[in-house]
């Protein structure tokens, strides 16, 4: 097991290098550049800027320079926002996205799994229809509808929570609630549906029939005998889902004015901010790779038939 973990960790390095390399060249293939604008810059100015950001060097040299910086942990200067570098942006926004995403995921897990299990054991009753109805709404209603509706109800009408903002002091925790709830909705829906179908399938399996024939109570059967098996599909869904949710959502960040990482995914692309694009890609890929690794480890913990050598 230890050997497997070490191997997997070492294996992440080439994967990341390949991702960095591909994104480095792909962003440069895209037409336009960080300093292209409708008004043509004077040639001297353009030449100076290009020289400052080493854009006048041959591509391969730029690539070498960039890789060398990355190995030292420097993601480079932002091409768009002067005086700031990519490290600064990520260091400032990622923690906020992680906090928000973690709360959202926690909500989605607790309510999604409960709703899924209830729907499964009360299949074809009103409880089932209610949970799955909410789940369908969660999947089909877009965030930019859910979020303002929540703001309207809980901030404007009831005045329980602030409409937007992100504070860390005093009653700052209140600012997390609405964005976390909005963000969690789609994930809740997916988890609830997955849990329901997976639980139903597990409850139909032969070993559950054996447990019943042993005289066990339904609740014991569900939590002791069916839970582990039923959780496997949810665990594999959680890897990529968690990577997605903690790297932020531009919609939620815009609506609730959360200074998270999500907006950089979109803004950096519009701005052709080469270093920032590659920077957020690196962060997202690194998290995704680690999450998939964690999923594999949890899988082995849940299912004794899986062993890694």
């Amino acid at each position: 097991m230890t050997k497997y973990i070490v191997n997997r960790l070492l294996g992440m390095i080439p994967t990341l290098l390949i991702i960095i390399t591909l994104s480095f060249f792909i962003v440069r293939i895209a037409p336009g550049g960080p300093f292209a604008s409708e008004r043509k810059l004077p040639e001297v100015v353009e030449r100076n800027i290009n020289a400052k950001y080493h854009l006048d060097e041959p591509l391969i040299q730029q690539y070498g320079r960039y890789m060398f910086d990355i190995l030292r942990g420097d993601l480079g200067p932002s091409f768009k926002y002067k005086d700031y570098d990519v490290n600064y942006y990520i260091a400032n926004s990622l923690p906020k996205s992680i906090v928000l995403g973690s709360y959202a995921m926690l909500l989605a897990l607790v309510f999604g799994i409960s709703a899924g299990i209830i729907a499964a054991i009360r299949q074809n009753t009103w409880l089932d229809y209610l949970s799955m109805g909410v789940a369908v709404i969660g999947i089909s209603v877009p965030l930019f509808v859910i979020a303002p509706v929540l703001q309207l109800i809980f901030a404007m009408k009831l005045k329980w929570l602030p409409t937007s903002g992100w504070y860390t002091t005093g009653e700052g925790w209140k600012t997390v609630i609405l964005p976390a709830v909005s963000l969690s909705f789609a994930y809740f829906a997916n988890i609830a549906r997955l849990t329901r179908s997976s639980m139903l399938e597990t409850l139909r399996s032969d070993y559950i029939r054996t447990a019943k024939a042993k005289g066990m109570k339904n609740t014991t059967i569900i939590f002791k005998h069916a839970m582990k098996g039923a959780m496997l599909p949810i665990v594999s869904y959680l890897g990529p889902a968690f990577a997605g949710i903690i790297t932020g959502s531009i919609v939620v960040e815009q609506i609730f004015r959360v200074p998270g990482l999500g907006k950089f995914f979109v803004q950096s692309s519009f701005n052709r901010d080469y270093t920032l694009i590659v920077g957020v890609v690196i962060v997202y890929s690194a998290i995704l790779i680690v999450m998939n690794f964690v999923v594999d480890i949890i899988y082995a913990q849940l299912d004794p038939r899986i062993t890694y050598k």
């Binding site: 032969d206 070993y207 054996t210 024939a213 005289g215 005998h225 004794p304």
Partner: peptide
């Protein structure tokens, strides 16, 4: 439930799937 498994027990056709693989 107090009869199942205690007074009347059952074994099934497919032993490969009748035991819980997770326990």
């Amino acid at each position: 439930r107090s009869i199942r498994g205690k007074k009347i027990s059952m074994i099934f056709q497919d032993p490969m799937t009748s035991l819980n693989p997770f326990l």
